[in-house]
Amino acid sequence: MKKYGYLATLALTAMLTACGSQEGESVSKPSAESSKSEVQTTVEEKVVTDQLGREVTVPGSIERVVTGGILPYFSTWYVATNSTKEIVGMHPNSFNAAKNSILAKISPDVLKANTSFVQNGEVNVEELMKINPQLYVEIATDENSINKITEAGIPVVAVKAIDAAAAEPLATFNSWLTLTSQITGTTDRADRFLEEGKKVQAELDDKLKDVATQDKPRAMILHMHNDKSITVGGKNFFGNQWLNATGAIDVAENDVNGRKEVNMEQIYAWNPDIIYITNFTETQPEDLLKNKVNGQDWSQVKAVQEGKVYKIPLGIYRWFPPSGDAPLMLKWLAQKNHPALFDYKIEEEIKAYYKNFYEFDISDKEINSILNPSSDAAKY
Results as ranks from 00 to 15, higher is better:
residue 179 L to F: 01
residue 201 Q to I: 15
residue 226 N to Y: 06
residue 283 T to I: 05
residue 100 N to Q: 01
residue 187 T to C: 14
residue 68 G to N: 09
residue 113 A to V: 04
residue 112 K to T: 13
residue 99 K to A: 05
residue 367 I to T: 12
residue 293 V to K: 05
residue 66 V to E: 02
residue 347 E to L: 00
residue 296 Q to C: 05
residue 30 P to S: 02
residue 185 G to R: 07
residue 150 T to S: 15
residue 182 Q to M: 13
residue 201 Q to T: 13
residue 158 A to T: 05
residue 239 G to H: 00
residue 322 P to Y: 12
residue 7 L to R: 10
residue 367 I to W: 04
residue 133 P to D: 01
residue 240 N to P: 15
residue 273 D to H: 07
residue 174 N to A: 14
residue 134 Q to I: 04
residue 269 A to R: 13
residue 47 V to I: 15
residue 186 T to P: 01
residue 307 G to F: 09
residue 178 T to F: 02
residue 132 N to R: 11
residue 238 F to V: 10
residue 144 N to Y: 05
residue 118 V to H: 04
residue 57 T to E: 13
residue 261 E to P: 03
residue 26 S to A: 15
residue 85 K to D: 13
residue 279 N to Y: 03
residue 155 P to L: 08
residue 220 M to C: 15
residue 249 I to M: 01
residue 280 F to M: 06
residue 172 T to Q: 04
residue 16 L to H: 06
residue 167 A to C: 12
residue 51 Q to L: 11
residue 248 A to P: 02
residue 123 V to E: 00
residue 362 I to S: 04
residue 296 Q to G: 03
residue 200 V to P: 00
residue 291 N to L: 09
residue 279 N to S: 09
residue 207 K to L: 13
residue 216 K to R: 14
residue 4 Y to W: 04
residue 296 Q to E: 09
residue 119 Q to I: 14
residue 178 T to W: 02
residue 41 T to F: 08
residue 23 E to Y: 10
residue 89 G to V: 11
residue 349 E to D: 09
residue 31 S to C: 08
residue 23 E to V: 13
residue 56 V to W: 03
residue 294 N to E: 12
residue 226 N to C: 12
residue 358 Y to S: 14
residue 14 A to G: 10
residue 49 T to H: 07
residue 187 T to R: 01
residue 192 R to F: 10
residue 166 A to I: 15
residue 118 V to S: 01
residue 291 N to C: 03
residue 99 K to L: 08
residue 241 Q to Y: 06
residue 200 V to S: 00
residue 346 I to M: 10
residue 297 D to M: 09
residue 144 N to V: 12
residue 208 L to E: 10
residue 173 F to E: 00
residue 193 F to R: 07
residue 116 S to N: 12
residue 76 T to S: 15
residue 225 H to T: 06
residue 2 K to N: 10
residue 241 Q to F: 06
residue 297 D to T: 08
residue 59 P to V: 07
residue 370 I to G: 05
residue 247 G to W: 00
residue 159 V to S: 13
residue 368 N to T: 14
residue 3 K to I: 12
residue 89 G to R: 02
residue 322 P to C: 08
residue 40 Q to A: 15
residue 283 T to W: 00
residue 244 N to I: 02
residue 267 I to G: 09
residue 379 K to S: 14
residue 202 A to H: 05
residue 85 K to T: 09
residue 318 R to E: 10
residue 173 F to Q: 00
residue 189 R to V: 03
residue 227 D to C: 04
residue 13 T to P: 07
residue 224 M to D: 03
residue 244 N to F: 03
residue 102 I to R: 00
residue 248 A to N: 03
residue 274 I to K: 10
residue 102 I to Y: 01
residue 28 S to D: 09
residue 243 L to Y: 02
residue 223 H to G: 13
residue 284 Q to N: 07
residue 172 T to N: 11
residue 27 V to D: 02
residue 340 A to R: 05
residue 258 G to A: 05
residue 160 K to V: 10
residue 324 G to W: 02
residue 76 T to A: 11
residue 163 D to Y: 02
residue 121 G to S: 12
residue 104 A to R: 01
residue 107 S to K: 08
residue 145 S to T: 15
residue 360 F to H: 08
residue 296 Q to R: 12
residue 140 A to T: 03
residue 267 I to H: 08
residue 185 G to C: 08
residue 312 I to A: 01
residue 320 F to I: 06
residue 32 A to D: 12
residue 189 R to K: 14
residue 174 N to G: 14
residue 183 I to M: 00
residue 352 A to L: 09
residue 209 K to N: 15
residue 87 I to G: 06
residue 198 K to D: 15
